[in-house]
Design a protein around this nucleic acid. Structure first.
Lengths: 329, 329
DNA sequence: CTGTTAGCGCTTTCAC
DNA sequence: GTGAAAGCGCTAACAG
């Protein structure tokens, strides 16, 4: 910056001013400085800027898995809006483990982000405490709770599955089974299981909850195949399977195709998440759509508002879900 | 850090030492300091550390799109290995545009990453120059070139598609068509197109290259449906379609299913990338597998070696590809 | 093995 | 509108 200042014939302070508040100096000064920046190929050192100004212009985001497409979509929404506002996103992933999340949050806090984005509303006490002490805006997503750490933009996994149960009941299915791959730390999957149980109590009074939940399965279409076989073995008289994810449901539907099981006549299938693959299958996958991208965008907007010191309308925003009826159920 | 030092009864320097080289002090000192860190809930400010040490312990990565699953997988591989070595990844995305890539690289350089990861080998001159001046290890991926900016770990998109052409020729297909969605800045798609053209010259001497390439289509299964229709209209006598991506091929295959086009008897389909969906379809998708995750891991290993000052065996590593024969062709 | 000193490259504050 | 001085929180280099 000193070099640029010398070339432009001004003080370093003026260079800094041109960079952060161009309106604060005369147009000629500004142009001279900008020319000097170009000719010297100067790239501002943001670590020094951060240290001096106490603002890092970054937002930390922790998601369960980078390669999980739904979270990547949320991240894309978050990142798009945040970049507009001049913020960079730094990403960590927890591998669906609360302990790893704690480590990741601690490590990301070392970079002094100006705000924090989390997937889920269940965290260790240490995480809640660290974030509270950091005294920065925090937004939780992909779930619902009465008491967020700070802000919340999401939907109720519980209600979403309950709505699916209501739907299959309305369509006359007799024995719905809930089928899931659910890592121990995957609270969303857990909440969906609970939603199924309470949906059964509400809409299939007297019937037992029937579930096939495996903890050690990856979230892939191949696991859907495995779960289909398990469900058929365990509940051979079931007429509809509610999956915790479209990925699993799609794998199961394609496996049915191979095994000559007619969907939905012999066995109906409901997914969760409205992944693209479900739209293209034959028959199309009946599913519950959730606002994947919008959660990221809205979370970003809420954070930016807070960072600008603007008042925020509501600390919690329920973006809801939508049951999408296609051929599979 | 001064607070921690006071609580532990040592100097700030000793706290710093415990954090970066625990072996460099007596176990008792170390334990006193660690206890003080816990009791004060100290989180080291990495921006200050970066400024003082001139090492940010970050690696910048630019990918075309965060929500594109193949790049997310590469990123996961990169991130896993780098985290082990103590490096954080900061991510930017170019939206398949060279101009945006330039902006993103400039902005990421402001954070003074210790190394740089890029997808692709074609970049603007400004990008090459900025990275050269930064004088940090750079690794390019997902393609092949004789003259990388610095290091390269990838495969030849050109050869990969040529191999697919050779395969369909061997299997007796008469009129292969190359079908792609290819954004203007998507060099990988472009290289695949070139690979098809030269594969045709080699294996179908005398035949014209037949291509259906759309520039304004998203990389989704839905686009595969659109492209299938276009290809059937433009080349009704074609007996095999080579797609630039499994996503497109899968969409097309499912559309064939709906339209009653028998695959592969009436029309064969070859994909690219070995996405999971292709493995589950009926028939399974014949495709070219590329080392998605391994490229990230190997790139990370090469960078870490360089950052540690260790000698690197080779500046370029060709991870190759593999033709996977399934039912669709 | 531990402490002291001097800065890293910026921004804030306050003069002018 | 612009410049000078001080300092952000840490680490390198050196001394002891």
């Amino acid at each position: 910056m000193a070099d640029v200042a010398q070339v432009a014939g001004v003080s370093a302070q003026t260079v800094s001013r041109v960079l952060r508040d161009p309106a604060g100096c005369t147009p000629e000064t500004r142009e001279r400085v900008e020319a000097a920046i170009r000719s010297t190929r100067y790239v501002q050192n943001l670590a020094a800027s951060h240290l001096a100004s106490n603002r890092s212009m970054t937002v930390a985001a922790v998601i369960p898995q980078i390669a999980a497409s739904v979270f990547a979509e949320t991240l894309q929404g978050l990142s798009n809006v945040l970049l507009q506002a001049g913020y960079q996103v730094i990403i960590g992933h927890s591998d669906y483990s609360h302990e790893r999340e704690e480590d990741v949050v601690r490590s990301l806090l070392g970079r002094r982000p100006d705000a924090f984005f989390l997937v889920g509303t269940r965290h260790t006490d240490a995480v809640r405490e660290m974030l509270q002490r950091a005294a920065i805006p925090v937004v939780e997503t992909w779930a619902w709770t009465r008491k967020p750490i700070d802000q919340l933009v999401g939907f109720s996994n519980h209600e979403a599955i309950a709505a699916a149960v209501a739907y299959v009941q309305r369509r006359g299915y007799a024995r719905p089974v809930f089928v899931a791959a659910a890592r121990p730390g995957d609270d969303r999957a857990r909440e969906r299981l609970e939603g199924y149980v309470s949906g059964m109590a509400r809409h299939y009074a007297g019937q037992p909850a029937r579930t096939v939940v495996m903890e050690d399965l990856p979230y892939t279409m191949g696991s859907g195949r495995v779960l289909l076989d398990a469900a058929r073995t365990q509940f051979p008289d079931s007429d509809v399977l509610l999956f915790s994810s479209d990925l699993l449901a799609s794998g199961a539907l394609l496996a049915c195709q191979r095994q000559g099981i007619a969907v939905p006549r012999q066995l109906a299938i409901v997914g969760f998440g409205d992944y693209e693959v479900g739209r293209e299958l034959n028959p199309g996958l009946t599913t519950v759509a959730v606002p994947t991208v919008r959660m990221g965008e809205e979370a970003a907007r809420m954070l930016v508002q807070r960072l600008r010191g603007e008042p925020v309308a509501a600390r919690r925003r329920d973006l809801g879900f939508e049951l999408i009826e296609r051929g599979s159920a």
